[in-house]
Design a protein around this nucleic acid. Structure first.
Lengths: 257, 257
DNA sequence: CGGGCGCTTGATAGGCCTCAACGTAAGTGG
DNA sequence: CCACTTACGTTGAGGCCTATCAAGCGCCCG
């Protein structure tokens, strides 16, 4: 997809475990020891690539693998008989995919690549071995997974009780914050490969209305969504307008010493 | 609250572990052995009662305990600065409360008693001990917790992509199905202590509109919500109308042998 | 008996959807 | 190199769905 060529990717093999977005994210929560880094490196062995638009996990399938997202964006969604779809969440580099469907054996939604993506496939045994071998690592991963679930809840509130403008503003901030955890964004903005249709499907709006709302937010000098980039024109104003609470994402000190 | 007196409660001490709604629910997933029942009994020791309307878990607090809900309904919600609130989920007898906030240490929402409730308080050590002692039990509990999370996702779709009528219909069916797992409801209906305001806050609607929608559903002969009771006047028609998928809740055979 | 809470119903307003047309940019094949 | 295609973005008109405001009813309880 690569809109306008501004979309960042990290090509090639993983030269060092320190390049992994997952490692970068986990380090914000827990200081990782040498053996723990070794285990993480082991989990990154089986690299795979999927083309943009490819759905690689299907509703109802008993999925045998989990994936660590190395580069690119994916989305998980459900469809309704009316034909419309609801995007439940987006995943960005450093996120786990299908963690729950390994630990338990339900895949109740689709997962589709938004851009071309690179993932590391993790077999169930490998994951369980890694967790028993390094419990602290398991705690850190589950902590991150739980934070993702907290965001699904926040997403629900977004849709249930906020106006269209607030929804869009809140969503753009949230994605920015998640990306900043893996070094792919800051208070100035970030590269975003999503179309206005993606926003619409995620926020329960029509694409037409998303377009109008984006124009309004741009004209109000808060945020610009254009050409595959999100630019925060006035970060503080946007945070106030969207009632964005960074507390539930902000983890200053490592969780475990 | 006890609307109309029809609301069912199980009073008094737990005479037998078999009376526990949690045991009843877990049994649908896994055949429980004697030792496992003993462990469950141990978790039920510390009984507590909360009055209707009492909020016993607060946003931001570091909660030290989990609870097993024995009787009554509770709801978990978040509030917005505008004053409105979004109910994320309801819990009914047999559900765990605050499981995540024990395993990890975040409580990002409120939990409030809808009716007078009876709970068993479970200390973190007790829970972790029980899980290491009987891993199959841990799997069953996590399975149930995962099913609850799947319902939050379904709830999100409810709000994002369904009309008000479909939302209400889908919600009433979902609660009915959850209650049937613990023997508190069937295809005829169930006792429901919720007010129309509760429905509104859960479904992202105004109470006034909920009222109109309920009238419509009643006049169309599908479901009656009145006097603390939900009556399915035409179960099949309602399921079809709401596009209710029982697959993700329906667990015919036990998960583990 | 008065007051509060929940339910009910009507009138009005507005947010968001749908339909529709057009612009722009990138990819494709002759 | 250009016509064609496709995808995404933009803008307008009209209308439905749902919120808001407001008033009244019934019931329970102090």
């Amino acid at each position: 997809m690569l809109i306008g060529g501004v979309y960042l990717e990290c090509h090639g093999a993983l030269n060092s475990i320190h390049e992994s977005p997952l490692v970068r994210k986990l380090r914000a929560f827990v200081a990782l020891s040498g053996p723990e880094l070794d285990v993480l490196l082991r989990l990154h062995q089986r690299r795979r690539t999927f083309a943009a638009g490819h759905a690689f996990l299907h509703q109802g399938h008993s999925q045998r693998s989990a994936f660590i997202l190395a580069s690119g964006w994916v989305c998980s969604y459900k469809t309704l008989p009316s034909g419309s779809r609801q995007i439940v969440d987006f995943q960005v580099p450093g996120d786990f995919l299908g963690l729950r469907s390994v630990l338990l054996q339900t895949s109740d939604h689709f997962i589709e690549a938004v851009t071309r993506v690179e993932v590391s496939e993790v077999l169930p045994e490998e994951l369980l071995d890694a967790f028993t071998e390094t419990p602290r690592l398991a705690a850190a991963v589950l902590w991150a997974a739980s934070r993702d679930e907290a965001m699904v809840v926040e997403h629900l509130i977004d849709i249930g009780r906020r106006s269209a403008e607030e929804r869009v503003a809140h969503f753009l901030l949230e994605m920015g914050f998640r990306l900043s955890l893996v070094g792919l964004g800051d208070k100035a903005g970030y590269a975003c490969p999503l179309s206005q249709f993606h926003l619409a499907d995620a926020l329960g709006l029509s694409a037409v209305h998303v377009n109008r709302v984006l124009r309004k937010l741009r004209e109000d000098g808060m945020v610009t969504f254009r050409g595959g980039k999100v630019t925060f024109d006035n970060f503080e104003k946007l945070v106030a307008f969207a009632d964005f609470d960074m507390a539930y994402l902000d983890q200053e000190r490592p969780l475990l010493k």
